[in-house]
Design a protein around this nucleic acid. Sequence first.
DNA 1: ATCATTGCAAACTGTTTGCATCAAG
DNA 2: CTTGATGCAAACAGTTTGCAATGAT
Lengths: 159, 159
Amino acid sequence: MGVFMACEREHLTKRIEERGLRATEARCRILELLHETHQHYTPEEMLEALRERGRPLSIATLYQNLQKLSETGLIARFVGPDGHTRYDVNTQPHHHLICKICGRMVDVGVTGPLGSLRPRALFEGEDLDSWRLGEIHLEFHGVCPECQARQADREKPTA
Amino acid sequence: MGVFMACEREHLTKRIEERGLRATEARCRILELLHETHQHYTPEEMLEALRERGRPLSIATLYQNLQKLSETGLIARFVGPDGHTRYDVNTQPHHHLICKICGRMVDVGVTGPLGSLRPRALFEGEDLDSWRLGEIHLEFHGVCPECQARQADREKPTA
DNA sequence: ATCATTGCAAACTGTTTGCATCAAG
DNA sequence: CTTGATGCAAACAGTTTGCAATGAT
């Protein structure tokens, strides 16, 4: 990973400047963090992660940059099921796989007959047929490998 | 609707007391609002709607009651795609149909082969096979009949 | 020299809490 | 009369903004 960091930095600089923004330290470090980890950080978590990786950012600068980066389409803002605002480097449409134990969220695609799913009315008098339908966004819920292992640990020792 | 209001009130009272809460005016009025409209109100919107329907609730009382009602399972709290906390009388698992113009959200079921959908990894080294998969939650995005009409109005007059 | 960016502090929004008052069983 | 509910005001968390200092072109 460290091997192509310098090259990454050049690439990032280009992508940032293409959008008419100055490629400052702060912006490069934010994008690096997101690209390297594929995680969906909250601003608070990002602040912490950036602090650990070297000199910290001011909270105002972080928010200002998250705003610029997302309004120029370099990152995507969304609100997780926990209600916290999070950011994703993956600006392509995609789905989410969410661990119901630890809350970890992974970007995924989908295989299967997505196109044949249709909404079905739950209340009388609701006219779904007149809606013009578009994209479907999926949330897969499950338990991640790490949390399965943790559950297994908790059961076996006593057996 | 007004016909079985009194009966509704009795029914609500019973449901509230079953959960060990006192069936106060405030609680009945909150549940009535949600049951009658099937809407997904934010606290702010609820305050406004309740004000219009008669004597207003204090904001603290509203929040306190939304907390009690959702922690006892009488209503469900969730965070909409706009990031606002919303409440739903439908505590059964269900999906959402969302108008991408006005943001209106309708509870729906689904028809089609939901069970044959599988998440697909988007990054190398991501091991989805070891996840234990559970429920899938769908968000159908589209344009509601009202917004389609509004769009049509905007186009035709000039033609 | 100019204009974007930074970062402090203050403002603001949505939500929760402490507490005195009030009302229901 | 005891316990839960109400509602004001204060506290709080997350986010945005005004503005002076700084940095990049």
